[in-house]
């Protein structure tokens, strides 16, 4: 769509060198190989206390969640069920993701307010809630890389190129493609669609299909 904006040999000389203190302030990301993980530690017991104070109001005392806030524990063996429960324990492939995310975004509304040791402790408690460790466990930067997550091997790289793109191609039927067509499902039966500005906030008359709520929690 566009005549490309030209590169310049050697760059433009724009911006300025980032100072180490500045990089330290913002470089908070953690990787599965431990890159970014700070020195520190915390045990399940400490984590439980912190979790009750800062997290349980939304996520429930045992990660079971209050109302529609996210569930953080359980769900093992449900991934191939009709109603899978994807939690840290049942689904997440890497522990580093828990550390990174809790530190980066939680508690909701007070992001990055936790100390490193507090994050270690809360992650240890979340591991405990997910039956990954005993209640006397202490997580630290030393033993972090030894922790394997049960569902790691269930993830594989997008294979749509092989399984879908070649299948969903070619000239489709244009005429007399079926004998007859019947309606097999109707949205109005559920009656979960807001009908006006005001009704958008009303409780639906039927319970929306399980997937619905999850989708947008996860969008």
């Amino acid at each position: 769509q566009e005549n490309p904006a030209p590169s310049r040999e050697g760059g433009f000389g724009l911006g300025r060198t980032a100072l180490p203190e500045e990089i330290a302030a913002w470089d908070i990301d953690i990787r599965p190989d431990g890159q970014g993980l700070p020195v520190g530690s915390g045990d399940v017991y400490t984590g439980e206390e912190l979790y009750i104070d800062y997290c349980s109001a939304c996520h429930g005392d045992f990660g079971e969640a209050v109302g529609r806030w996210p569930v953080l524990a359980g769900g093992f063996g449900t991934l191939d069920d009709e109603d899978p429960h994807k939690t840290i324990g049942s689904y997440w492939p890497y522990l580093s993701t828990v550390w990174d995310y809790v530190h980066r975004a939680m508690p909701y509304g007070a992001a990055q307010s936790l100390e490193d040791d507090e994050v270690y402790a809360i992650v240890a408690y979340l591991m405990y809630l997910n039956n990954m460790v005993d209640d006397d466990f202490e997580l630290s930067n030393e033993n972090f890389l030894e922790m394997a997550m049960p569902n790691e091997d269930a993830f594989f790289m997008d294979d749509r190129a092989a399984t879908e793109l070649t299948v969903f191609a070619g000239e489709p039927c244009m005429e007399n493609c079926a004998e007859s067509i019947e309606i097999t499902a109707r949205a109005t039966v559920l009656n979960v669609t807001p009908e006006s500005e005001e009704e958008a906030t009303a409780t639906p008359e039927a319970t929306p299909a399980a997937a619905a709520a999850e989708v947008v929690e996860t969008a």
Binding site: E9, G10, G11, G13, G15, R16, T17, E22, A25
Partner: peptide, 14 residues
């Protein structure tokens, strides 16, 4: 490509 241009340096952290 590698940036070769000399960039400005900050006096202190922003």
């Amino acid at each position: 490509a590698t940036g070769k241009f000399a960039h400005a340096q900050a006096a202190g952290p922003d």
